[in-house]
Amino acid sequence: MRLRHRDGTLVHLAYCANVHPADDFPGVLDRLHRYAIPVRRRLGVPRLSVGLWLPRPVAATLVADPGALDKLRAALAAGGLEVVTLNGFPYAGFGKDVVKTDVYLPDWGDPDRLAYTLDLATVLAALLPDDVARGSVSTLPLGWAPWWDGERHDRARRHLDALSAGLADLERRTGRTIRVGLEPEPGCVVETTADAARLLTGVDTSRVGVCLDTCHLAVEFEEPGEALARLDAAGLPVVKTQASAALHASDPSAARRELETFAEPRYLHQTRAHTAEGVHRVDDLPDALAGGLPADGPWRVHFHLPLHADPPAPLAGTRADLRAALDVLLGGPAARTDHVEVETYTWTVLPGGRPDLADGIAAELDWTRAELVRLGLIEEDA
């Protein structure tokens, strides 16, 4: 969906297709027909933005085979779909029974991550609608912190420089601007916006910036206004915003039984506690439930919740933080991001069973659209 900010910026609202991952090209086309087109129809809009997730083999196929790329473009056009952003965080295997820390491999110390990201940028340059100024690719925040060292960091910085050079060459060849946003995430090398400001100093900010995930921001108890001020001071653009909400327990002891239902084996659910001493961290929700966190302050869990619905009491979500972030990003006189992507990839592991996926995605997009309209944006496809 397209909305216009008061400053004239065209803002795209999409949903991330990693919620229904596919491991091969036929699977990608199948998911568009099974989910994306029904979502568009439920919303009653003539055009829907989809943030595709293309695993490494699919990205390589599309770069090498112009016929496959033409087939994807035709499928998007026929379905009333457009692509302005790609999720390049998971490399492959996001639909496996157990993902956990595998999602951080390969990291930015590995040349395979650079090659994959440049392939995604090449594909996106070919998919961008003619009237869209630029595209975005989100990627992991360097790597998983426990695996990081100085040598890997030096390689990663060289790879980011090579990324900028590759994106500049792509723009010269195609006339399309593609930017890449590193996505701060709990437990990673770039965990917070403060880490981004410190560790991404010196990157080419015309092509590399931050993908701001509002669930991650909330899990780390970052206040959105302060977080954006840090990024502004560092000169880091918000290339893309992932609209998402975290799980919140004001009283973890009283909510223990409900929290246990969210401890599932597929994805990593980093958990944080906020006390008078500061923020305490463990790598997964079962670690917190086993005594890894103090229970005398609220907990927040990296579990992406549907944006339009509340979890069972006494649990809550962090929609207030999401609203505050959208307000800072798009409620002022100037738009500070132009790509907003709903990224609730956890529908299939929600406790209580899985609802109709197209209905759920459409409800989330409708909620987010209403929030953007509340901020004064005008829907262009209405």
Results as ranks from 00 to 15, higher is better:
S164K: 14
S164H: 13
S164E: 14
L167R: 10
A168G: 14
D169K: 15
L170F: 14
E171G: 10
R172P: 09
R172G: 11
R173H: 12
T174R: 13
T174K: 11
G175M: 04
G175K: 10
G175A: 10
G175Y: 09
R176Q: 08
T177E: 07
I178K: 09
R179H: 02
V180R: 11
G181L: 12
L182I: 00
L182V: 00
L182D: 02
E183V: 07
E185L: 05
G187K: 09
V189P: 02
V189L: 08
V190I: 15
E191W: 15
T192L: 06
T193D: 02
T193R: 02
T193E: 03
A196I: 10
A197R: 09
L199W: 07
T201K: 14
V203M: 07
D204L: 08
D204I: 04
T205M: 05
T205F: 05
R207W: 08
G209D: 04
V210M: 01
C211M: 03
C211Q: 01
D213H: 04
D213V: 00
C215Y: 00
H216C: 03
H216S: 02
V219W: 02
V219S: 04
E223Y: 09
G225K: 12
E226N: 06
A227I: 05
A227P: 05
L228F: 04
L228E: 01
L228D: 00
A229P: 02
A229R: 12
A229E: 05
R230F: 03
R230H: 06
R230K: 12
R230W: 01
L231I: 09
D232Y: 01
A233W: 02
A233F: 00
A233H: 11
G235D: 10
L236K: 08
L236S: 02
V238L: 01
V238W: 08
V239G: 01
V239R: 08
K240Q: 15
K240H: 12
K240P: 00
T241E: 05
T241D: 02
Q242N: 15
Q242S: 14
S244I: 01
A245C: 13
A245Y: 06
A246M: 11
L247V: 03
L247N: 06
H248K: 13
A249V: 03
S250A: 13
S250P: 03
S250L: 12
S253E: 13
S253V: 06
A254F: 08
A254L: 08
A254V: 00
R256F: 06
R256S: 10
R257C: 02
E258K: 12
E258P: 08
L259W: 13
T261R: 15
T261H: 11
